[in-house]
Amino acid sequence: MWRRSSYSNQAGGNCVEVADGFRAVVPVRDSKVPYGAALCFRTAAWTAFVGGVKSGRHRP
């Protein structure tokens, strides 16, 4: 099941969705292209990335 980022708005802007239920990887896709390609990240790498975003290390 895909879920949308909690930081995405409902206006159809730039949205990221992730799929739960995989042990070794985290599939990520663009919500505007639901049948397009998904990128798969190793769980540890995705966890480190999300932690970096939350701490402010990854700013636009």
Results as ranks from 00 to 15, higher is better:
residue 31 S to M: 00
residue 43 T to V: 15
residue 13 G to Q: 12
residue 53 V to P: 07
residue 44 A to I: 14
residue 52 G to R: 06
residue 57 R to L: 15
residue 25 V to L: 12
residue 25 V to T: 13
residue 40 C to M: 06
residue 5 S to K: 06
residue 8 S to E: 02
residue 17 E to D: 12
residue 8 S to C: 12
residue 38 A to D: 01
residue 32 K to I: 11
residue 15 C to N: 05
residue 17 E to Y: 07
residue 30 D to E: 00
residue 48 A to Q: 12
residue 15 C to Y: 03
residue 44 A to C: 11
residue 14 N to T: 12
residue 4 R to D: 03
residue 27 P to A: 05
residue 20 D to T: 10
residue 19 A to H: 10
residue 36 G to M: 12
residue 38 A to W: 04
residue 36 G to N: 11
residue 53 V to K: 05
residue 58 H to M: 13
residue 8 S to W: 02
residue 5 S to N: 02
residue 5 S to H: 07
residue 51 G to L: 11
residue 2 W to M: 04
residue 3 R to T: 13
residue 54 K to E: 08
residue 10 Q to M: 14
residue 46 W to G: 04
residue 15 C to P: 05
residue 49 F to H: 01
residue 38 A to Y: 05
residue 52 G to M: 11
residue 50 V to S: 04
residue 26 V to P: 04
residue 8 S to D: 01
residue 27 P to G: 06
residue 40 C to Y: 01
residue 46 W to L: 05
residue 48 A to S: 14
residue 57 R to A: 15
residue 59 R to G: 09
residue 34 P to M: 06
residue 11 A to G: 14
residue 36 G to L: 13
residue 1 M to D: 02
residue 49 F to L: 10
residue 47 T to A: 10
residue 34 P to F: 07
residue 38 A to F: 07
residue 3 R to K: 06
residue 42 R to E: 14
residue 47 T to Y: 00
residue 9 N to T: 12
residue 47 T to N: 05
residue 38 A to V: 10
residue 23 R to P: 08
residue 19 A to I: 08
residue 47 T to L: 02
residue 12 G to E: 04
residue 44 A to F: 13
residue 47 T to K: 02
residue 11 A to H: 14
residue 57 R to K: 14
residue 45 A to G: 14
residue 26 V to C: 08
residue 58 H to V: 15
residue 51 G to S: 10
residue 60 P to Q: 01
residue 7 Y to W: 10
residue 20 D to E: 06
residue 18 V to M: 02
residue 16 V to T: 01
residue 56 G to K: 09
residue 4 R to F: 13
residue 9 N to D: 01
residue 30 D to C: 03
residue 59 R to C: 11
residue 18 V to P: 01
residue 35 Y to M: 13
residue 6 S to M: 09
residue 24 A to M: 14
residue 27 P to Q: 01
residue 24 A to H: 14
residue 35 Y to L: 15
residue 53 V to Y: 04
residue 15 C to W: 03
residue 17 E to Q: 14
residue 16 V to Q: 00
residue 3 R to S: 11
residue 4 R to L: 13
residue 48 A to M: 08
residue 54 K to H: 11
residue 4 R to Q: 10
residue 16 V to E: 00
residue 47 T to F: 05
residue 55 S to H: 11
residue 2 W to S: 05
residue 41 F to H: 08
residue 27 P to F: 04
residue 14 N to E: 07
residue 24 A to Y: 12
residue 8 S to T: 08
residue 37 A to W: 02
residue 43 T to E: 12
